[in-house]
Design a binder for these strands. Structure first.
Length: 617
DNA sequence: CAGTTCACG
DNA sequence: ACGTACGTGAACTGC
């Protein structure tokens, strides 16, 4: 037995590493005693983050309580792996920090089904996110194990990740290669592996007490664990990539980026990504630049360059001026470069051995509770089918996308109890459009599509907390016109302003934390408390999506789900049942929020995701 | 590592 | 007193 000692919060703790079957029997005895006393903390160390990549290995499985950890050398196989596999189902209740990762690692590499482990799991990261959902950059503690341990357990808790990076470097590895390369029995590696479970075991009761103290409903905690499991199932399924198409596309985009970069170079811009170079060259050509970035420099982003290139927001010629050839080349080089690198090449780089992408789905990523997805899959261009064309439904399947209709406006109407808005949603029928309704409400039957656009801008302004100037810039309308529209909007829907004041007042009385409709804690920034309207709407919409996912699982459709996208669920469904399944998705995503109907619209596509974006594939 | 830009809902 | 567009992930530049 290898044994390490460390001090946590003034107490001596032990990390045991069994070397033979005699040692493993001691582990087994400990496990049987510990599981009677309470939950067992669980963790794994692996060769990296892409669980489905070639050569991926599960290296250690750790078990522990507040004082003792056992690091099982899974990678050695034989008895070590066997004890680990048999120990996990024996734990009645497990504690994991960021459970989805370990669920999926154990599911893929140790034969422990995530469906079996998840119902017995408490995820300390979920508990932490429900106490304070903010990232460190936003003034929160964050939800990583290290800062949470430092805050709640021991200010001197070791930085096991950062500490290992230094060890990796000293052994000639990098932060990336070290996880696979470090010798399995390196003492620091084993000590830190053990400390992680000891810290998790200590964190769980402390965070639970804090949730109780804050009055966070137990129901919300349970709900988040269900959502985490559902998102992990989608991550495990992953998405099929059309590799031939994607390779060709990556090559074509690289060539295009190169071609336009050559044009830009003729004007002295050697790097199209260098804002400083672009600014200097444009000024040298006699162009006037007025927009400023947040940092105070002259801006040369898309909104600045498009007019210089005589292009509108859809990249169509305006005919108002002679296009600036440099602006045009920079725009095109950057777009081709981004699409090629961030999407096409990233798809290929992230491929699993089965030719799939398994993006990390984080169910509680944003401070509003919104989810996030890695590998660019939440940000694929929607103006063109080219990139989404690379993602395929399963053989014999088609893509089905079902999205909520104007969900944030409906949520606003429901939460702020906006009388005339609610009337519209309740009586409006299937084809109801809130922005047309608003335009007619204010302008009468003379309302034009232009009025619709203006009041749509005003509506988004309300949900986002924007002012006249921003709405004017976004819609391209005159400030005076927008000012009138916003005033009319406020008269038509006076409840919104009143709700904003009320919600800000509630937050002030609760140490700047607004409690959402589902009991979620939403901390506000003191200098922009107006954002409470957005937080309330965004987080409620997220919780409706969560409820929809529970309904979808209840209807037996989870196996078809591929991605949650804020107000949409993307699915791959058998072609011959597509109509029926699409109707079921619609049913699962239709619900009621304080009498306001939340409705959903399913779309059946072809084999590729791109087929839902205008092309017929 | 901060700043800028660009892609989405 | 007044007014503030919200939330992400990712690549690249330049210090």
């Amino acid at each position: 037995m290898l044994t390490f000692r460390h001090t946590v919060a003034g107490e001596s703790v032990t990390v045991n590493v069994p070397e033979d079957t005699t040692d493993l029997k001691l582990f087994w005895d400990w496990l049987n005693r510990a599981r009677e006393r309470g939950p067992i903390a669980l963790d794994t160390e692996t060769t990296g983050l892409n669980i489905y990549s070639a050569g991926y290995r599960l290296r250690t499985v750790q078990f522990g309580d507040a004082h003792e950890a056992w690091v099982l050398l899974y990678e050695q196989g034989g008895y070590h792996a066997q004890y680990a596999r048999e120990a996990i189902p024996r734990c009645r209740e497990v504690l994991i920090h960021n459970a989805a990762f370990d669920w999926l690692v154990l599911d893929e590499h140790a034969g422990i089904r995530l469906e079996d482990l998840a119902p017995h799991t408490t995820d300390t990261r979920i508990l932490a996110a429900l106490i304070d959902p903010r990232q460190p950059s936003e003034g929160g503690a964050g939800t990583a194990l290290k800062p949470l341990s430092a805050k709640w357990i021991d200010p001197a808790a070791p930085d096991t990740q950062g500490g290992l990076t230094r060890v990796f470097n000293s052994l000639g590895f990098t932060k990336e290669t070290g996880w696979a390369g470090i010798p399995l029995t390196h003492p620091t590696y084993l000590l830190y592996a053990g400390l992680d479970v000891i810290l998790t075991a200590r964190l769980a009761p402390v965070l639970r007490r804090e949730l109780d103290r804050l009055g966070v409903r137990h129901q919300l905690v349970t709900y988040e664990h269900e959502i985490a499991r559902i998102c992990a199932v989608m991550q495990r399924a992953g998405l099929l990539v059309d590799q031939d198409y994607t390779s060709t596309l990556a090559g074509r985009l690289a060539e295009e980026a190169e071609r336009y970069a050559t044009v830009a170079a003729r004007y002295g811009v050697t790097k199209v990504g260098s804002s400083a170079q672009v600014t200097e060259a444009l000024l040298g050509m006699g162009e006037r630049l007025t927009e400023r970035t947040k940092g105070g420099a002259l801006a040369t982003d898309k909104t600045v360059l498009l007019p210089l290139a005589d292009l509108d927001r859809d990249w169509q010629r305006i005919g108002a001026r002679q296009p600036n050839a440099l602006a045009d080349a920079v725009l095109r080089a950057k777009r081709a470069g981004k699409w090629g690198k961030t999407y096409a090449e990233a798809f290929l780089a992230n491929l699993s051995t089965a030719g799939r992408i398994h993006p990390t789905v984080s169910p509680l990523a944003a401070r509003t509770g919104r989810m996030s997805v890695t590998a660019g899959l939440h940000q694929l261009p929607s103006s063109d089918h080219m990139i989404r064309r690379a993602i395929l439904a399963e053989p014999g399947h088609v893509m089905v996308s079902t999205d909520f209709q104007a969900v944030e406006m409906r949520v606003l109407a429901a939460l702020a109890n906006v009388r005339r808005m609610k009337e519209g949603f309740i009586n409006g029928g299937d084809e109801f459009d809130i922005h047309t309704y608003t335009a007619k409400l204010i302008k009468g039957e003379n309302a034009t599509p232009r009025h619709r656009k203006i009041f749509k801008g005003a509506g988004f302004g309300k949900v986002y907390g924007g002012g006249v100037a921003t709405i004017a810039k976004q819609t391209g309308a005159e400030e005076a016109e927008i000012a009138q529209a916003v005033a009319a909007y406020d008269r038509a829907f006076p409840e919104i302003k009143r709700a904003s004041s009320r919600w800000q007042r509630q937050a002030f009385q609760n140490r700047m934390v607004f409690i959402s409709a589902t009991g979620r804690r939403l901390p506000l920034d003191r200098d922009r408390t107006y954002s409470v309207v957005n937080y309330a709407c965004q987080s409620a919409a997220r919780d409706l999506l969560g409820q929809a996912l529970l309904n979808i699982e209840g209807a037996g459709l989870l196996e078809y789900c591929r991605l949650p996208i804020h107000d949409e669920v993307l699915a791959s469904v058998p072609q011959r049942d597509a109509e029926d399944i699409a109707r079921e998705f619609q049913r699962c995503m239709s619900m009621d929020l304080y009498d306001v109907p939340i409705t959903a619209d399913p779309e059946i596509g072809g084999r590729s995701w791109g087929s839902l974006y205008g092309a017929d594939y």
